[in-house]
Simulated scan of single mutants.
Amino acid sequence: MVFLSSFTLPDEDAEWDFFIKQKSRAYSTYYPFQVFPQKHVPQLTFEPITIFYGDNGSGKSTLLNVIAEKLKLARGTLYNRSSFEEDYLALCDFALGAPVPAGSAVISSDEVFDAMLSTRALNQQIDRRRDQMFDDYLDNKFATFQYHDLSDFDALKKVLEARRKTQSRYVRDNLAKNAREFSNGESALQFFKEKLQDERLYLLDEPENSLSPANQQQLASDLTDRARFFGNQFVIATHSPFLLALPHAKIYDLDRVPVAPARWQDLPEVQTYAQFFADHASEFRKEPPHD
């Protein structure tokens, strides 16, 4: 599915027109102005999966955020908007292949990391509560309790429960289950499985962060299936060779001037990986066992 069909950034002339209208020259930066003109970014056209590739500082995250703000997509973490954001967005333009569904969002690696930290904090609270529950069990099990009236009913229930159960069973039955059932990488995968809904547009900023190579491959498979079978469109900023190799993805190389589509196999970072494994190819050959 293609919701976002094309996006156009202001060219050098449009940015220059903006600057000559400014009465003050007191600002040291006019971000996001002055980021893209020298790159000669063409009108960007989108497929069900489109990828922005580039080295650190290439502007891929900035571009993703500009698109997200222009489309008014939901976001789960704060975004540091500059004083000139609205002026810049006013000069951007886009075309839709279909209306952008409610619930479409931009998801940053910070949001994934915050979700993992929230889970960790919840678990720490549960762990502290578990220690309290151990003491609670012993207090109730060996209490010299006397029932007087209905106001004592809840206390009586706890005493009887403690005397009827083992300590571990008492704690398990009275304590929320620990939310940390996954490693960090597995938690990140779980975040995407719960967050991504069918028939939505999602802008993903370096979603491979916190993921091992195996989990990056799993994420790539999940995104491919979602784009193919569940009506999702993805625009992704990434370095990951596993995501860059997504089938039928359109890749814009933001390190190239002018910016242009590229094959994933030709990208410098992928070539670096390929050369590394080529140099060590002999080390991967299995030696026959010695007698």
Results as ranks from 00 to 15, higher is better:
Phe7Val: 01
Thr8Arg: 07
Leu9Arg: 04
Glu12Pro: 04
Ala14Ser: 06
Ile20Leu: 13
Gln34Pro: 09
Gln38Asn: 10
His40Met: 07
Thr45Met: 01
Phe46Met: 07
Pro48Glu: 06
Gly59Leu: 10
Leu63Pro: 11
Val66Asp: 06
Lys72Arg: 14
Ala74His: 15
Ala74Val: 15
Arg75Cys: 12
Arg81Lys: 15
Ser83Gly: 15
Leu89Met: 07
Ala95Thr: 02
Ala95Gly: 06
Pro99Asp: 07
Val100Gln: 09
Pro101Ile: 09
Ala105Trp: 05
Phe113Thr: 06
Gln124Ala: 09
Gln125His: 05
Gln132Asn: 08
Met133Arg: 12
Asp135Arg: 01
Asp136Arg: 11
His148Gln: 06
Leu156Lys: 10
Leu160Gln: 08
Glu161Trp: 14
Ala162Asn: 13
Arg163Trp: 05
Thr166Tyr: 09
Arg169His: 15
Tyr170Asp: 10
Asn174Trp: 12
Leu175Gln: 10
Ala179Cys: 14
Phe182Pro: 05
Ser183Leu: 03
Phe191Leu: 12
Tyr202Asn: 02
Leu203Val: 09
Asp205His: 01
Glu206Leu: 08
Pro207Thr: 00
Leu211Trp: 02
Gln216Phe: 01
Gln216Arg: 00
Phe230Tyr: 08
Phe230Met: 10
Phe234Asn: 12
Val235Asn: 12
His239Met: 14
Leu243Ile: 11
Leu246Pro: 02
Leu246Val: 08
Leu246His: 04
His248Glu: 13
Leu254Cys: 04
Val257Met: 05
Trp264Gly: 07
Gln265Trp: 11
Asp266Trp: 02
Asp266Met: 00
Gln271Ile: 02
Thr272Pro: 04
Tyr273Phe: 12
Ala274His: 06
Arg285Thr: 15
Glu287Ile: 13
Pro289Leu: 14
